[in-house]
């Protein structure tokens, strides 16, 4: 199992997860999922709703436990949540009683390394372009800004992987484009491995190196595409459009 190449970050082997509903009937959310995620890559999970892509992301985060299979991070099993695996939720879920700056500093405070790493706050405020809002409370900023803060909050821990569950899903189209741009810059700047769950195929193509396509009931990965387009991709280029068509076809 550890014979994987040097740059393997996460390996998923035969991962399965079932849920029992209130009547006791079992639904298979994930079945026999196998995937290797490499260091520094940007991979997207794409699929219809209810296909288990969020479930898999939560399993990698350690927020949920699988019934079968193994999840390894650099060869050691994933056991519970950790700052090594940053998570960005669909709703920014900033703590409303903390300012933007305090929200970003949360990980440093929780890990008692605030003194040593304090300088990172300004750095990440700069990366997300919100230096002017560090003293603002979450209710005073827009949804797009809040999601930027949530991303910075996860990144300040310098996680081995950043897991994102439809982080741009709740935003309007214009803000979403803007944030895709920002996300791309963040990834290029920090080189963090990113796993993105999305149902927006364009977003997946625009941002990722690889795209894992999920099918529903039982949830499993049907195919993984390598995105072989110039960076940053041009959304109107025939290659982009052709690639999008291939992915959409694979979803049916």
């Amino acid at each position: 199992m550890t014979t994987d190449k040097d740059n393997t970050l996460i390996s998923l082997r035969h991962v399965g997860r079932t849920y029992a509903d209130t009547t006791g009937r079992e639904t298979m959310a994930l079945q026999d999922v196998n995937l290797t995620i490499c260091k520094g890559e940007f991979i997207s999970f794409v699929g219809p709703s209810g296909c288990g892509k969020t479930t898999l992301l939560r399993l990698i985060a350690g927020l949920d436990v699988p019934q079968s299979g193994t999840l390894l991070l650099e060869g050691s099993p994933i056991d519970g949540p950790s700052h090594e695996r940053g998570y960005v939720f669909q709703q920014a879920a900033l703590f409303p009683w903390k300012t933007v700056e305090e929200n970003i500093a949360l990980g440093l405070k929780a890990r008692h390394i605030y003194r040593e790493k304090q300088h990172l706050i300004a750095e990440y405020l700069h990366i997300i372009g919100l230096e002017g809002f560090k003293g603002a409370y979450p209710h005073e900023i827009s949804g797009g800004m809040a999601q930027r803060v949530a991303i910075a909050r996860a990144l300040i821990n310098e996680p081995k992987v950043l897991l994102m569950d439809e982080p741009l899903g709740a935003l309007d189209a214009f803000t979403r484009l803007e944030l895709q741009e920002a996300l791309r810059r963040v990834w290029e700047k920090t080189g963090t491995t990113i796993v993105l769950v999305t149902h927006d195929v364009d977003e997946a193509i625009y941002l990722s190196n690889r795209i894992a396509i999920f099918t529903a009931r039982p949830g499993r990965i049907s195919v993984v595409f390598d995105v072989d387009l110039p960076s940053p991709p041009d959304r109107d280029h025939p290659d982009f459009i052709a690639f999008r068509r291939r992915i959409l076809q694979s979803l049916h």
């Binding site: 927020l63 950790s82 700052h83 695996r85 998570y87 709703q91 703590f95 949360l106 929780a110 890990r111």
Partner: peptide
């Protein structure tokens, strides 16, 4: 909210 706990846990709390 449960999400607040999850956020904090993934940040190392």
């Amino acid at each position: 909210p449960k999400t607040y706990y999850e956020v904090a846990k993934t940040l190392g709390a």
